[in-house]
Simulated scan of single mutants.
Amino acid sequence: MKAQILYIVVAIIAGAVLPIQAGLNVQLGKSVQQPIFAAFASFLIGSLGLLIYLFILKFNFTSIVQTKTVSPLVWTAGILGAFYVAVVIILAPRLGTALTFSLIVTGQMIISLILDHYGLLDLPVKQINWQRLVGVVFLVIGVLLIRKF
């Protein structure tokens, strides 16, 4: 149970840093009048940070050859991440941070329910039920309230 509480706290922190990252990336994009540069810079610095972390972990880089066995679809994750970061940088100044992220969370929840329900991408199956659907409805209501006010 303690581990699950830790995971929940870490997830909340991860969610909390996304709007901060968006604000910082927006500032970087404005400085060069190009939001896509900010997304590129974000991925470049993030990639360097992760590379350093792999060295700290003493990652066995020879295991990279095992990636030859994964589906080519797996490699699209980087493109999806780049799309996400670029869209946030473009939309946050136009829609506001709260509306941008409430829409993003709503999209995440809808797709997450579908992934869980069918066990897509080798994820565990968790059936859609009325309680989960009510949660999504509350998110949509939240988006509408944030948008209106």
Rank of each mutant, 00 (worst) to 15 (best):
Y7P: 00
Y7F: 12
V9G: 01
V10R: 02
V10A: 05
I12D: 03
A14M: 08
G15I: 08
G15C: 10
G15P: 01
G15V: 10
A16N: 05
V17Y: 06
L18Y: 04
I20H: 15
I20F: 15
L24T: 09
L24E: 09
L28D: 04
G29Q: 02
G29P: 01
K30I: 02
S31I: 02
Q33S: 11
Q34G: 10
F37V: 15
I45H: 01
G49N: 07
Y53L: 01
I56V: 13
I56G: 00
L57S: 07
L57A: 09
F61S: 12
V65K: 15
W75H: 13
A77R: 09
G78D: 10
I79C: 05
G81S: 12
A82L: 02
Y84P: 03
V85A: 01
V85K: 00
I89D: 01
I89N: 04
L91P: 00
L91T: 00
A92M: 05
A92W: 00
R94I: 03
I104S: 03
I104L: 11
Q108Y: 04
S112E: 06
S112Y: 09
L113Y: 06
H117F: 14
Y118G: 09
L120N: 07
L120C: 13
D122K: 11
L123P: 03
V125Y: 13
Q127R: 13
Q127T: 14
I128F: 15
W130G: 06
R132E: 04
G135Y: 06
V137Y: 13
L139V: 13
V140R: 05
I141H: 14
L145S: 10
R147A: 14
F149Q: 08
